[in-house]
């Protein structure tokens, strides 16, 4: 190698250095920013997020916002909306607005807790199955298949009637039937991610399996998991409403959005006392829509780079 060649190489090296230094500094905190920017472009998602935040605030602040105790029975039963009871009272004389606020609180609590439980469990199962493969994968996936093949509403009804309805029974029953979806999703992601060069590079660097799973594979799947969990909150709230509507959910006198609808099973309430079920139905609709829009927005924002 002669001097000219060396000089040429040095020049090439310098020119590459220059290109890199032209990268604007603002790019460096980009991922979070990029996600926010993409999410903000999604008008409905922004609306959904605002509504979600509002609903969560209502849920958290219910004890301070509610004008009455939700279970307090007054003499004014089935009173129509008035200045005293903004949304009227139900058949045993409880303030509908207070129950609505508390109901939102309970429904959201169920939604979030259930999702947290089953996402953790499903992700764990999916990662193990996808990464280890072979008979472990076979076994875990057949178990998920079994869970998926139950008509879950019926089994849920049976379990709840055996164990007795309570907040925790419902959370556990709902989680029990919702983890297979996320387990299969995560398994699929792990199956493709474990073949990625950077995961193989991690193995070649001597990293232990848990480190590879948690630090190198899981972050790659986290976008899909978050999106799935967001949709999961909406669907869990709907399921809870369904169970409660059938009388197998949250037990009276505790209010939930679903068991407020329970009252609408009577024809007189349905046709003549709309204040008893319209607000609860509306809040359910609003919650489910809001979470689904947020999910949509997140899916677009987290998808790829």
């Amino acid at each position: 190698m002669n001097a000219t060649e060396l000089a040429l190489r040095q020049e090439a090296l310098d020119s590459e250095r220059e290109t890199v230094s032209e990268v604007p500094a603002t790019n460096y905190e980009s991922y979070a920013r990029q996600v926010r920017r993409k999410f903000m472009r999604h008008k409905l998602a922004v609306w959904g997020l605002a509504t979600t935040v509002l609903l969560i605030a209502i849920g958290l602040l219910a004890p301070w916002l509610a004008p009455y105790h939700p279970n307090e029975i007054t003499d004014d039963f089935s009173a129509s909306p008035s200045a005293q009871y903004w949304l009227g009272t139900d058949q045993v004389g409880r303030d509908v607005l207070s129950r609505l606020l508390y109901g939102t609180r309970v429904s959201l609590l169920i939604g979030f807790t259930t999702v947290a439980l089953y996402v953790l469990f499903g992700t764990f199962v999916g990662m193990i199955a996808g990464y280890y493969g072979k008979w472990i994968d076979m076994l875990l996936m057949r178990i998920t298949d079994i869970f998926l093949s139950f008509p879950y509403m019926l089994v849920a009804l049976v379990i709840v009637s055996v164990l007795g309805a309570s907040l925790w029974t419902i959370i556990i029953v709902l989680a029990l039937f919702k983890w297979p979806g996320i387990a299969m999703l995560v398994r699929g992601m792990v199956l493709s991610l474990k073949k990625a060069d950077y995961v193989r590079a991690g193995v070649a660097l001597g990293y232990r399996t848990p480190r590879i799973l948690l630090r190198h594979i899981l972050p790659g799947a986290s976008g899909a998991i978050i999106v799935n969990a967001t949709f999961g909150v909406a669907s869990t709230i709907l399921s809870e409403a369904g169970l409660s509507f059938l009388g197998m959910g949250v037990k009276s006198p505790q209010a939930s959005l679903g068991n407020m609808l329970h009252d609408a099973q009577s024809l007189t309430v349905l046709t003549e006392q709309q204040w008893l079920w319209l607000p609860a139905g509306f809040i359910i609709l609003l919650t489910v829509l809001a979470f689904n829009f947020v999910g949509d927005g997140l899916r677009d924002a987290l998808d790829g780079r």
Binding site: A196, D197, Y198, R200, A204, L205, G206, Y207, H216, P219
Partner: peptide, 24 residues
């Protein structure tokens, strides 16, 4: 082998575009 990998013997791969963890 695991203790040896990365400390005593290490490896660089063909594809620099995909051999780094994209989210770290």
């Amino acid at each position: 082998l695991r203790k040896m990998r990365g400390s005593q013997v290490s490896m660089i791969f063909q594809e620099p575009m995909t051999s780094l963890n994209p989210v770290m």
